[in-house]
Design a protein around this nucleic acid. Sequence first.
DNA 1: GTCTATAAGGTGATAGAC
DNA 2: GTCTATCACCTTATAGAC
Lengths: 204, 204
Amino acid sequence: MNKTNTEENIIQAAEYEFIERGFEGARMQAIADKAGINKALLHYYFRSKQKLFEVIFKNAFKLFIPRILNVFEREDINFFEKIEAFVENYLNILAKHPHIPGFIIHELANNPSSIVKIVQEIAPDLSPIKQQIEAEVSKGTIRNIRSEHLILNVLSMSIFPIVASPIATMILFNGDKKQYATLLSERKNHVSDFIIQSIKNPNL
Amino acid sequence: MNKTNTEENIIQAAEYEFIERGFEGARMQAIADKAGINKALLHYYFRSKQKLFEVIFKNAFKLFIPRILNVFEREDINFFEKIEAFVENYLNILAKHPHIPGFIIHELANNPSSIVKIVQEIAPDLSPIKQQIEAEVSKGTIRNIRSEHLILNVLSMSIFPIVASPIATMILFNGDKKQYATLLSERKNHVSDFIIQSIKNPNL
DNA sequence: GTCTATAAGGTGATAGAC
DNA sequence: GTCTATCACCTTATAGAC
């Protein structure tokens, strides 16, 4: 097998293992097995568990941080439509990678400097969005709200139900996963509706 | 030292270690050190890492699941006031134990049956609250909304900013923890305002 | 590039003395 | 109840042959 193929196999296997079990829970042996190779080759390619982990984390973080800015730079739709587009798009991404947010959050919980560095490199600049929110407040299309709260509310309602799906499923539906899946699919419309209802200027 | 004291020391040390590092990351040696004893005594008291973990998890989960029902059973305040009271109370609890939600979520991610059992035992019954929301919709005090979405929205906006505080701090404030702490304190009022603005019937 | 074999150090857990 | 000493196993990582 050529280099590129093996490397790709390792990355896919490591992605699964790290995201599913976290850095501490992941086993190099398990990654090697899943990639169809042995541990020695793993170290030949990535030298250490830590190095391999950082590659995976970086990939995952890129997915977690969506190209939010893109949607908000469009000029053909208004602010409310931007929110709708963002939420629907983001929930679709999260539905495809439901374990990534929890992975990122958990690995970042103790702020290991190795990872913080990665985050700082990739983290997007939200100031254009902040300015846009403030502009809408000034225009009067939305009521007075601090931009950081609005951003946090959107992200909370989008991400949390996926991160906490095991508990939420148990508490809301006594463990019925099908019902919870239905609820999640409804949220593509619900979340943006809920937000817009809250922020729109009632006098318009 | 008498039994009760040592046991309490162990539990406190284990709480810190497990909640900070998770089951996989926690070390029995570290717990023993923190409790001022040795590993052997740890096993004398709790027989295994797993057993000790389950004690800690149970304690933590009891805190994570607040006595929501209490607030919603009060008859001296209206529905909106109940939401305000709940959010403020819950955010205060979370502020005192900021690492617990992430701990619960992470440990539950792979649904180990040992823990799922604990959750099922303690999990509260939300049906009274669901009914109350539906009643408010019928009365017309709030617009039509599925109760599960409303509950999820409240919990999301309360818990997520704390669970994801490391990333949120970096993205929103370039890592300035003080600014983020201020934002969090504002949320005791903001979250309930945001929700009430969204659900209140505009025709009243 | 890929393998087998093995090193080096940690980890949960127990035996047995006090 | 509490300790020291130790076991048995597992984990990451490397050496060296092919």
